[in-house]
Amino acid sequence: MTRLLPHPQVALTLAAVWLLLANSLAPGQIALGLLLGWAIALFAARFWPQVPRIHRPLALLRFVGVVLIDIAVANLAVARLVLGAPARLRPAFVRVPLALRSDLAISVLANTICLTPGTVASRLSSDRAYLLVHALDAADPGELVATIKRRYETPLREIFEPC
């Protein structure tokens, strides 16, 4: 944006984090938080040459909801696998071909895959063509890839890179 207020979203987020840390909503704390957010965003601006654009905020909220539910459900599944017979696991490395292009979208996708239990994103190929994912119990790798693409990648494309 302007040179004096390079990243308004970053400044507001930092102010919110400050208020959470202080655990109070006193006017003084709000002023201090906004001041800190503004100053830190100003000095950190050179690390963020381009501003990430969120095109569909509502879709982002929906995505967060889906991920939270998936975390809870899949955690129960992993707990069952751990308590059951580990010898019967079928772990596998799976390649997920990527349709996403931007740094931010790929990192969000990788973080989502790591957060939902049972899968860990292990490596991004140097040409960004695919993401290597390790699955704890993959009976059908093709199905896993299809699920990841349908459930996470498609909404992320809508949110960050609509074309």
Binding site: I71, A74, N75, V78, A79, V82, P86, L89, P91, C114, L115, T116, P117, G118, V120, S122, H134, L136
Partner: peptide, 12 residues
């Protein structure tokens, strides 16, 4: 093995 062990702690 290590790759399966990784799933337990980091998420549960």
């Amino acid at each position: 093995d290590f790759y399966t062990r990784l799933h337990g702690p980091t998420k549960a």
